[in-house]
């Protein structure tokens, strides 16, 4: 049997469409995006065929987010319920954030009181953005989140950009700072938060850290330079996402330098010709 059924003549991964027979089920195991029909492994998604030893799976080019434990996600509160919040994380269902899995002002060890349950909107309201980590999930595929670390919590001073979740790769840290004075949070669910840089001595646990501001709804003053940097980074992400290029802090820093060198204004980056030259330059360097 031809062993190269997952690659075409030019050595690139083959594409498939729903209902297409990939290979024989007697020799291979079905993974995500496939099913078995009459001793054949059949694709149920349109995308690239991936094979790890005997496991065959199909990866779609565009999907909603499938949560995994330990993932860092950026989400938006959609509903306040009894002792829990519903959070939109671009998944099949809204994720759950329990009152017991957030840090309340006044110390990590503070007990949750009934009064806290009555003032849940003081912490998170509908429409608020937050960064959280995925905990072990429910049986039905709904995700549980927690923000029990000072790194997590409400987001402010920035802008949200959404891309396809397949463009975000898992990595050591999803909190990145770009040299241009902008902080990035790359949510595994494809939600990216671009915000004003927080100085080292104002981070959690340091002396400049303002514990009262954790649940604040007010933005700090952001100067024009930072605003331009944030919009430039957000436009760069749009340009990369439109061309299905995985988004990392390295590629963004590279592209940002190029954009500054070329003296392109943030809005110029969205023009097709500028975007093409930028992508060609940056991918050639990588």
């Amino acid at each position: 049997m031809d062993m190269d059924w997952d690659f075409d003549d030019e050595g690139v991964q083959k594409l498939t469409s729903p209902g297409e027979v990939i290979t024989s089920a007697t020799q291979f195991m079905r993974g995500h995006g496939t099913f078995v029909e009459d001793n054949d492994v059949v694709a149920s998604l349109s995308g690239t065929i991936e094979r790890v030893n005997k496991l065959v799976s199909v990866r779609a080019l565009r999907t909603r987010y499938h949560g995994e434990v330990g993932d860092l996600v950026v989400g938006r509160i959609t509903e306040v319920q009894a002792a829990r919040w519903k959070v939109d994380v671009n998944g099949h269902q809204d994720a759950l954030l329990r009152l017991s899995s957030v840090n309340l002002p006044g110390g990590v060890q503070r007990r949750k009181l009934e009064s806290d349950e009555l003032e849940m909107r003081k912490f998170f309201e509908e429409g608020d953005l937050l960064v959280a980590e995925v905990q072990p999930t429910h049986g039905d595929g709904a995700l549980n989140l927690h923000t029990r670390s000072l790194k997590y919590g409400k987001l402010r001073n920035g802008q949200l950009v959404t891309v396809s979740p397949v463009l975000i790769r898992r990595r050591n840290s999803h909190f990145c700072s770009l040299p241009c004075g902008v902080d990035l949070i790359l949510g595994m669910n494809g939600y990216i938060w671009i915000a004003k840089h927080v100085a080292e001595n104002q981070k959690e646990g340091e002396e400049g850290f303002d514990a009262e501001a954790v649940y604040s709804n007010k933005n700090d003053d952001i100067d024009m330079e930072t605003r331009a940097a944030i919009s430039r980074v957000s436009n760069l992400i749009h340009v990369f996402a439109r061309r299905s290029i995985p988004i990392t802090d390295a590629i963004l820093a590279e592209a940002y330098d190029w954009a500054v060198q070329q003296e392109t204004s943030p809005s110029d980056l969205l023009r097709a010709d500028v975007g093409d030259t930028m992508v060609a330059m940056v991918t050639a360097l990588a």
């Binding site: 729903p18 998604l45 349109s46 565009r62 999907t63």
Partner: peptide, 9 residues
């Protein structure tokens, strides 16, 4: 299929 919904065909 474009949306990445699993289909039998």
């Amino acid at each position: 299929a474009d949306a990445g919904v699993e289909l039998l065909g």
